[in-house]
Each structure stands twice: as structure tokens, then as C-alpha cells.
Simulated assay, not measured.
Amino acid sequence: MIYPIFALVLLTFIVGVITLSTRFKSVLNRTVKIKYYRNMQGQEVPEFVTRTTRCFNNLFEVPVLFYAVTLMMVATGHKSELSLLLAWCFVFSRVVQAMVHLTYNNVIHRMIGFWAGFIIVIIMWLELLFTAVP
């Protein structure tokens, strides 16, 4: 179970680096004033700055439920092929959502990635509840 967790952490770091790079570039090429980043308000910013920020923030929303359920599985010694498969499917859904968000940003495609991951993490919680709790 540790490998899917690590994969999601790695995705978060990658998107974080992209976000940071985008912010530095926006200040260096003077499309965004550095003061904007204090409160993230006060001026219009390029769409890509907003998208990278939102994508990074998204990796701290539903994935928190994934981290919680996978760590509960590790802590309780719960092991099943289904839970491992679901964990990798969740990570894949987040990779898809991030790639869509950071590239062509089709809302329908991004929503499919989001809802797939959301449903998967619910199934993971149900599997843990019904198989690990006496």
C-alpha cells in the first residue's frame, strides 16, 4: 500500500514544483506583481497561474480521504488485492485530473477524473469498514 501513497505524494510534489515555477515566471516576466501572492487577490492573473494553483490545491482535498483510508489499512494490517487495485486506480484518477487541469483543461474530462477518484475512495472506505472492523 505504501507505493500508491508514495506515488500520490510524488504527484503532489511535481504539481507543486510546476506551481512554484509558474509563480516565479509570472513575477519575473511582470505579468503578476509579487504582492499578489500575499493574499492571492488584488489583480487579474494569467489563467495558467490560477490553474496550477487550483490543481495543487486539489491535491489537498479528496486525497486527504485517500491518505486516511490507506494509512488506516496499513495500521490495521488490512491487505487485499482489491484495496491495492483501488489505491492504484485512485492515484491514476488523480494523475488524469492533474494532467487535464494543467494541459487542455476540459472541464468534463477533469470532472470524470475527479468523480472516478471520489467514488474509488468511498469504495475503499466501505471495503475497510466491512472487512477490517470486527
Rank of each mutant, 00 (worst) to 15 (best):
K25E: 02
F92P: 01
L28M: 11
L10K: 02
A87S: 14
Y3T: 07
L128Q: 01
Y3C: 00
M99P: 00
F56L: 15
I112M: 08
Y3F: 09
A116Y: 03
L10R: 00
L129D: 00
L11H: 06
F114M: 02
F56G: 07
F130T: 10
F114L: 03
V32R: 11
M99A: 15
N39H: 11
L85P: 03
L128T: 01
T103V: 13
T19V: 10
F48L: 11
R51F: 13
A98R: 09
L10Y: 00
A87I: 02
V96Q: 06
V74I: 15
C55M: 14
S21C: 02
T22A: 03
G77R: 10
V133F: 10
M1Q: 07
N57L: 14
Y104D: 12
Q97C: 04
F66N: 05
S80P: 06
L84R: 04
V133Y: 08
A68G: 12
N29Q: 14
L128G: 10
V9F: 12
I119V: 15
M111Q: 09
S93R: 02
I5H: 05
Y3I: 08
I14A: 13
H109S: 11
L85Q: 06
R30Q: 15
K35A: 15
M99W: 13
M1E: 03
P46W: 08
L59N: 14
V17R: 04
E81D: 04
V69R: 03
V96W: 14
A7S: 08
L59E: 11
L128H: 07
G117Q: 07
